[in-house]
């Protein structure tokens, strides 16, 4: 009941902010349209819908970090949080209440992007559902990153870190905009040590129906998701216990 009440409040805070909706759905929409038009004029295999759509979904998830981080950072400095910290709530109640409302938003984002991809010519098949499900660990990882940043930084810093840095950083290192193996060297090494590239690869394999190949890429993503979640929950718990 306590988690449901907190989650419902967070859900309402997110969806009632029109900027959240326009950024979370608008940016990926613009990108998929833009890159599809480029693909039609100058065919590049990377921008084929079967390759690009899983990457756009992961890019869209970066906004989950921004939204969750901003919500927590603002909440932490509000008097409402002071009130809530004096009520019989545990850190786990708070942390879960930030994850729960963002998961359906992630699902909505993925469904919306695939819907647009279908309109642009992607073949409808059951693997779309598989690709959406395979992308969910990445959604959890991005929400965790937001929870972590929102717990540590203030809302202005979260805006810079999750809004500007993370969106660009994860996009460059995700193999969505350009082939990281073409860059090679340390750049490719760093990209493959981080989860963004693996999240896109796992989504692509699932969309192609090659489920036997989604691992070890999905292990990377799940590993990062678990590690970042654990860190976020631990730091939030520490901060909640006598933050002031």
């Amino acid at each position: 009941m306590k988690i449901a009440a907190l989650s419902l409040r967070n859900w309402k805070e997110i969806v009632r902010d029109k900027l959240n909706i326009s950024f979370g759905l608008g940016f990926p929409l613009v990108l998929i349209l833009l890159l599809s038009f480029i693909q039609k004029n100058i065919p590049v295999s990377m921008f084929e819908l079967s390759q690009m759509t899983p990457g756009i979904i992961i890019f869209g998830f970066t906004f989950l970090s921004l939204f969750s981080g901003m919500l927590i950072a603002k909440d932490r400095t509000s008097s409402l949080f002071m009130r809530l910290f004096t009520s019989p709530l545990k850190p786990s109640h708070f942390v879960l209440s930030y994850y729960i409302p963002f998961l359906p938003i992630a699902l909505l984002q993925a469904v919306f992007i695939y819907f647009v991809a279908l309109l642009l010519g992607l073949n409808l098949n059951i693997n779309i559902l598989g690709s959406i499900l395979v992308s969910l660990p990445a959604a959890i990882m991005f929400i965790s990153l937001g929870v972590l940043c929102g717990t540590i930084f203030n809302d202005k810093q979260v805006g810079g870190i999750c809004g500007a840095f993370l969106t660009n950083f994860s996009a460059w290192l995700s193999d969505t905009w350009f082939d990281i193996d073409l860059v090679g060297g340390a750049f490719a090494g760093v990209a493959k040590a981080l989860p963004f590239y693996h999240a896109v690869e796992a989504g692509r394999f699932a969309l192609a129906g090659e489920y036997s190949k989604i691992f070890p890429d999905l292990w990377w993503v799940m590993g990062y998701a678990i590690a970042i979640s654990a860190l976020a929950i631990w730091i939030f718990g520490k901060k909640m216990n006598y933050d002031k």
Binding site: R9, K12, E13, D17, S78, S79, L80, M82, R83, T86
Partner: peptide, 14 residues
Amino acid sequence: ISVSPQETAIAPNL
């Protein structure tokens, strides 16, 4: 206990 903090403690969008 219950606390009514110095600043108004409400959820503004609700």
